[in-house]
Amino acid sequence: MTLQRYSVFAIILFLIGVFTLFSGFNRAPFRQTPNQEHPAQHSQALPEQTQTAAAICSPVRQ
């Protein structure tokens, strides 16, 4: 295989990868239930503390 032919293959592979990323096949699907993810958020916490813990584990920092 020549470098030129490999380059075409690489571009196709990259596009497949981007599509995989877009469609979410690269990761396990999100759970639809509202169950808490992390043990620290379970049972012992009061509802306010649970929401605070959820906020800590969230998402994108501003």
């Binding site: 990868g17 990761r27 999100f30 759970r31 929401q51 969230s58 998402p59």
Partner: peptide
């Protein structure tokens, strides 16, 4: 696989999207 506040993906989702690329 959970969502923060049941709405938005957590930090690790974005980190691993970048890891995939």
């Amino acid at each position: 696989t959970g969502l923060a506040g049941g709405v938005q993906p957590m930090q690790c989702h974005y980190a691993y999207q970048a890891e995939f690329i």
